[in-house]
Design a protein around this nucleic acid. Structure first.
Lengths: 218, 218
DNA sequence: GGAGCCAATAATGTCGACACTCGCTACATC
DNA sequence: GATGTAGCGAGTGTCGACATTATTGGCTCC
């Protein structure tokens, strides 16, 4: 839905296209990515594909199996490890945001929470909006490295098929948690903001674990 | 000093070679990197060079200036931001290490500190050994994502020319701080280990700031 | 003398072809 | 029937050439 033109994709697009293909599920974790196949699918030569693959490998979205690349997958342990890092980084972002966010930025965060109350029924919209909220939170930290590291974390999370927001009843609760974060930042209470984020992500993790456990196909 | 053979460097080497060239100072922050020049220097075609450059750009070691790539540089603000992130991540690593490190790993850390007491006079050796110590600390967290993120941080730090250990008198003090970290981990005291790392990095930052301030060429 | 335009140039983006390696299959040998 | 082996793809690694585009330098015109 990004570009309408049928013009040939350019190098930088190849990256996005492959990413999207993974997101959409065309390539699932474990799938083998063959350069020539991707090249043909996107109508470019192997060169831009290779460079996009390099990038994705560097970001750990792809991993090597022998000589070829496969979509990385997160087992239970890795998911737990990822959550630990995410929680710490995002907690740090909240603490920094409490210190450095401008009033306008806090307003934007608040408006995002308010707007989300209108869409608690649409899980897909909530998921998108949720991503935007967190991104805005990261930016409010005014720390480029932190934003970059969190981008990496989020990209790895893209390997996790479901978002915990899709789970029944999670939406409204998550919104209250978002509100708590925004309030703490608005009050310039860094420690509280940190705790609110920790609480939020802990809940999200619990939700995910419960959900995944119920999904087992034994 | 890595490979003796004069055989043509292979793709993965190109990455390391460029990295080394930056480390050594052949390319300083701000320098423009021209593909054909690198290709000639290393005796390969532009393709492997391009892929290495992609990787380096993804890791923020290179940045784009218009269409060409230049070695990224860290201004004062960015350095401060980097230290904040590093402190949080490395503090987390210490806390996790206190929980998850095996006895053997703790022993290795302890031996590293002990061995370093023999070389407090050799700044270069200390710097290398220091890197190894921190790496070992990261690994002791048993969290792959954290290790990966810290790798990124350390690669960015490579853009900072000097190490704070080179400063007169910093060596012995830093060693004591290392010892404090190891002791805390050995005692399985996560909170203390976290604080010890925070203290250590804070001191290192102060040292760097003072040193850099004295170095200004006004 | 300065501003704007045009051409030459240098560097990047892309491509198709070739080289090389690894795994697989089919065959022969024991 | 099992095992070793030779040939054959499939796929990645690398290359040189061409296309495209920013930049720079010079030139003209005001």
């Amino acid at each position: 839905m990004s570009t309408l033109a049928t013009s040939r994709p350019t190098q930088r697009d190849a990256y996005g296209l492959i990413l999207e293909a993974i997101d959409v599920g065309i390539y699932k974790p474990g799938s083998r990515l063959v350069e020539s196949e991707l090249a043909e699918r996107f109508g470019v030569s192997r060169t831009p594909i290779r460079e996009a693959l390099q990038r994705l490998e560097t970001q750990s979205l792809l991993t090597r199996d022998g000589r070829s690349l496969i979509v990385a997958s997160l087992d239970h342990n890795q998911m737990a490890e990822l959550y630990v890092v995410r929680t710490e980084l995002e907690g740090l972002a909240a603490r920094l945001a409490a210190q450095h966010a401008s009033v306008e930025e806090v307003n934007v965060l608040q408006q995002m929470v308010d707007a989300d109350r209108m869409r608690v029924s649409d899980a897909a919209a909530l998921a998108r909006s949720n991503k935007r909220f967190h991104k805005q939170l990261h930016l409010a930290s005014h720390n480029r490295f932190l934003v970059q590291q969190l981008d990496l974390v989020y990209r790895s999370m893209a390997l996790l098929a479901t978002t915990s927001l899709a789970v029944e009843g999670r939406g409204p609760v998550a919104l209250d948690e978002h509100q708590a974060i925004v309030t703490a930042i608005s009050d310039r209470d860094g420690a509280l903001a940190y705790e609110a984020v920790k609480q939020h992500l802990s809940q999200a993790f619990v939700t995910r674990l419960k959900h995944d456990a119920g999904e087992q196909s034994w």
